[in-house]
Amino acid sequence: MNSTNMRLVDWVRNRQSPTKWVILCKAVLKKQFTIMLRYRVNFAINIVTMYVLFAIVFFGGQAAVSQAGGSFNSLDSTLNGLIVGWFLWTMSQGAYSGLASNVTQESEWGTLEQLFMSPFGFGGVMWVKAIVNLVQSTVVGGIMLLLMMVTTGRILTVDLVTIGPILVLTIFTIIGFGFAFGGLALIYKRVQSVSNIMQFAMVGLISAPVADISWLRALPLVQGSGMLQASMRRGVRLWEFAPPKLVVLVVTAIVYPLVGYVIFSYCSSVARRRGVMGHY
C-alpha cells in the first residue's frame, strides 16, 4: 500500500469524532479569548489604532470637502461605502494575519511542534484556528462597525441573516491566503513584509471596480465586498441577489481556501524534509 493510501486509511481509522472537534474548537477559542482579555490593553490599543486611522480618513475628508466649498453630506453614499469597506478590511486583516502571522508566532513561542503533534493533525488544528480567527475577527469588526456608526452618525442596515453568510464566505476567500502565507512562514519564518503588502492588497480588492471589470469578481474579497455594500447600504436581502453573484461568492469561498490549504500542506512537507518545522 503506498504512502498516500496509508495516510487515507489512517485518517479514516483515526478520524476524530465531532465531539472531539468541538472540544478542540472550544479550547482554541478559549485560549484566543483568554489571551485577548488578559492583554486587554494591547487589544484596546489595536482597536484604537484602527479607529484613529478611520477617524483621520473620515474627519480629514470632511475638512477637505468643506475647504473645497462642498457639502460633506453630499458624499453620503461614499461615506457609507467607506464604513462598510473599513469594516470588511478590519475583519479580513484579522482573519488573514491570524493564520499567516500566527505560524511565525507559534514558531517563536516554540509551540508549533506541539500543534503539529496533535492527533487532529496539523492541518486540522490550523483549520480550527482559521474558524476561531473568523469569530475573533467578527468581534473586532463588530466593535469597529459600532464605533464608526456612532462617530459618523450613520445607521447602516445590519441584517444578520444576509450579512452573516456573506461575511463568512467573503472572509473564507482571504483565509486561503492566510493558509498560503502561513505555509511559506513554515519554511521561510519571516514573511511579515509580505503580510504588510497584503494589507494594501486587501484595500484594493475591497474597493475593486467590479462594475467596469467584471472578471475582478473572481478575485478574493471582491464579490463579497460588493454584496456586503449592497446589503448594508441599500438593504438588499440575501435571496434578492442574482444567483450568479451567489455562485461566484460560494465558489471563490471554496476554491481559495482549498488552494491555500494545498500550498500550506506542500510547504509543511517541504519544511519537514528540510528539517525546519518549528525551527526558529
Binding site: W11, R13, G110, T111, M117, S118, P119, F120, G278
Partner: peptide, 16 residues
C-alpha cells in the same frame, strides 16, 4: 494520528 495518541515531546530550545 495514531502515533500522536501515544507520543509527546519536550523539545530543547522551545518553550513548548
Amino acid at each position: 494520528a495514531e502515533t500522536y495518541n501515544r507520543v509527546g515531546a519536550v523539545l530543547e530550545g522551545a518553550r513548548n
